[in-house]
């Protein structure tokens, strides 16, 4: 059944009124994709591409201008459905006057969870806040607030984790720990929808990726499909103008033609080597930023 995906977005469009003057700004336009059960889907795009807007539409924080969103076939506003979600917002913040333990206890009560303080201690230990359980959140750094946010998201053992830039601003060790937790949660059975700027993270842990640019869907598919089986080659030539070495990456099919063209132009070829295609290449190609 197609409509029981954890997330199904069909022709989503969202407009906002302009801050100055009349008219609207099109933040997202005709976006469709889905997240299937047990997948980790990366959601990538440059700043202002519409990622956070899409996530907020999925969570019911924004009204849709057009289109339809269903979570396990139901409406995002349905409280039973929302109980199955763990959410990490971008740059999360919490009331300064509470400690992590107080926050977790209150969130547990609001969610109707039956955990006790020991459970929340284990959770804080898991996200790396074991020593800080009774410290006021006002003393927390950005990274610690991200960890706090992860603890709250994981508290209910959610079936779906929606993460908006969860590793932004984290150091490499913390990023690695976050990645490991995401993989553990996925193994437990949770589907993950991960919005991130850090393409290497997405490439490492995601099964699929959705690429957004200018509010439009540019590419979508499994990592294998996106990275492709086609080999890429990197040709290094010496620029006639500057005398410096310049690199150019091209698909295998175009390799011979390109070498012939360079020879016709009498450009000295320094080397030709096989290049591994990265998600960055795919992203740049999909968003049209690789023309240079």
């Amino acid at each position: 059944m197609a409509d029981v995906h954890p997330i199904q977005v069909i022709d989503l469009s969202k407009q906002f009124p302009r801050k100055k003057g009349l008219g609207t700004v099109q933040a997202v336009s005709g976006v469709s994709f889905n997240v299937q059960q047990g997948e980790i889907v990366g959601f990538i795009g440059h700043n202002g591409a519409g990622k956070t807007t899409t996530i907020k539409c999925i969570l019911g924080l924004l009204k849709l201008s057009e289109g339809k969103i269903s979570l396990w076939g139901g409406a995002p506003a349905d409280s039973k459905i929302r109980k199955r979600i763990g959410y990490i917002p971008e740059n999360p913040d919490y009331d300064d006057s509470f400690t992590p333990m107080e926050y977790l206890s209150m969130f547990a009560s609001m969610r109707g969870l039956s955990g006790v303080d020991e459970d929340w201690m284990k959770l804080l230990k898991r996200v790396g806040l074991a020593r800080w359980e009774t410290t006021g959140i006002r003393q927390f750094s950005k990274g610690m607030r991200q960890r706090m946010s992860l603890a709250i998201a994981l508290q209910s053992n959610p079936d779906l984790l929606i993460m908006d830039e969860p590793t932004g601003g984290l150091d490499p060790i913390a990023r690695k720990e976050f990645r490991e937790i995401i993989i553990e949660e996925n193994r437990r059975g949770a589907s993950v929808f991960l919005s991130s700027h850090i393409l290497s993270d997405v490439e490492t842990i995601c099964n699929r990726a959705v690429i957004l640019a200018g509010g439009k869907l540019m590419a979508e598919g499994s990592m294998e499909d996106l990275l492709g089986e086609e080999h890429l080659y990197r040709i290094t030539v010496v620029s006639r103008k500057t005398g410096e070495e310049v690199e150019e990456t091209i698909p295998e099919a175009d390799l011979q033609n390109r070498i012939d063209a360079l020879r016709r132009d009498n450009l000295p070829i320094v080397k030709v080597e096989m290049a591994l295609k990265s998600l960055e290449d795919v992203f740049l190609a999909a968003t049209g930023k690789d023309s240079q």
């Binding site: 969570l59 019911g60 924080l61 506003a77 409280s79 929302r82 109980k83 979600i85 763990g86 959410y87 917002p89 740059n91 999360p92 913040d93 919490y94 009331d95 969130f107 609001m110 969610r111 946010s149 709250i152």
Partner: peptide
């Protein structure tokens, strides 16, 4: 301060 988002998005209507 964006404390609203995690509240409204998941546990509270």
């Amino acid at each position: 301060t964006r404390t609203l988002m995690p509240l409204i998005a998941v546990p509270l209507s």
